[in-house]
Structure formats: C-alpha cells, structure tokens
Design a protein around this nucleic acid. Structure first.
Lengths: 102, 102
DNA sequence: TATAATTACTTACATAAAGTAAGTTACTAA
DNA sequence: TTAGTAACTTACTTTATGTAAGTAATTATA
C-alpha cells in the first residue's frame, strides 16, 4: 500500500461516498427540513436517515434544531461547514446535466 | 414519497456515493494507471476495484486500454466524461482543506 | 531448472451496511 | 375512543464489502 493520498481528501470522500449522505446535504440546501420530509423526498429509510443525521451532526455539517412548541418541531439544517459543500453539489448538478441522459 | 429531485442528479449521486468510486476517479486524474497501482494507492480490495472499474467503464467514465506487449499491460484512464468530474474533485479537495483537520 | 514473483483478475466465504416492517412515545384531530 | 403524525428505535433480512486464496500468463532469481 502506497497511500500517498491526502488524508483530508480521504476523509471527505469517506463521508460523501456513503450512501445517501450527498442526497441529504443536497436536500438541505433548499433550507431547514424535518425528518419525515427528508425521508420522503429522497426515499431513504428512517433507519439509515437517523444514522446519517447523527454522523453529519457529529461532523458539524448538519445541525439539529428543536423548537419546543406543542407538538415539538425538529428541523435539520446545514451549518457553515455544510454550506461549504454547495459548490461541490452544484458541480454534480452541472456534470449530471452535461453527461447523463434524462 | 415526493421525489422531486432531478433523476440525473440522483443517478450521479448513485455513482459517486458508492464506496471507492470517488477515490478511483481522483486517482486517475493523475493519469492512466494499472490495476495493481490503483489497488495499492487507495487501499481498495481487488474484488471491489474490479467491480467498480467495470461499472465505471460501462458508464463511459473510465476506459480500459490494453497494450499487447509481453507481458501485456493494461491501463485505466478517464474518458472525457470522467475528466468532466475534475472540478468536482477539486472542490472536495478545497472543502477538505478548509474544513477538516489534518 | 525449479522456485518465487508479478499482473490482472476471479471465487468462496465472513462480516458489515442497508432495506423492510413493525413498534414506541408524545401529541392532535375526528 | 380511534386514528393519525412526527421522530425515532428495534428486530430481522438482504445486499455490499472485506479477506484470503486461487488462476493463468509471463518473468526473474537461486
């Protein structure tokens, strides 16, 4: 094993290369959203969504906001770090428009 | 399920969101490379690398070049479509430099 | 000359990740 | 009172990945 690749790049890829992570972030670019809304819009299972949101929160990419109304409302949003991924997401959009069939 | 997300974006994410795919493409940005070289540089198993290269080839992102020398030499390189992913890879680099610890 | 090594894989088997469906707790609307 | 929604969790099944060994062709080494 040579492993000359930058460990930060590797870590970023480890995050983004996980199933659903990119879709969740992309979805949150539209603004804060609730659990069930993310779930239904991208088609991820609750089991995995729950797992991913926890990971992303612990990485400081997503923030969990609790609004103590009745009933309580919980929204997930991107942090500054998470918003930093927008250019990247736009590149994926552009590439997919340019190179993939509809 | 609402699924208002662009199907092309979804497909792109389905590709890039697979384990190792991004690392393979990133590695190939440095130029054509042989199987065992990719294997050792990113630490992917031969089993999965073989699978991914076939997928990427069938998607037209990677090209398999056979040089009939003795012994035969096989190199993998990015197609134009694959090279189109460079800006995206550079954005991941930038983001990881800006937001992740070394 | 026999043995070991390399390249580009494939195969078989074990473990980890994801999907599915049901369950939970708190609350609301009919 | 019954049904429904939101935000999850749990148990179980299926799929994906990791690990290690095997293969075929060729080359280098003792």
């Amino acid at each position: 094993m040579d492993k000359s690749i930058c460990p930060r790049f590797e870590k970023a890829m480890g995050l983004l290369g996980q199933r659903w992570t990119g879709m969740i972030i992309y979805q949150l670019l539209d603004g804060p959203q609730r659990f069930c809304s993310i779930e239904s819009s991208i088609g991820v299972s609750g089991r995995v969504l729950s797992e991913r949101l926890k990971d992303l929160e612990s990485e400081g990419i997503v923030k969990r906001n609790v609004y103590p109304e009745t009933p309580v409302r919980i929204e997930y949003s991107l942090t500054e770090k998470g918003l930093g991924l927008e250019p990247l997401m736009r590149d994926i959009e552009k590439w997919s428009q340019a190179w993939l069939e509809a």
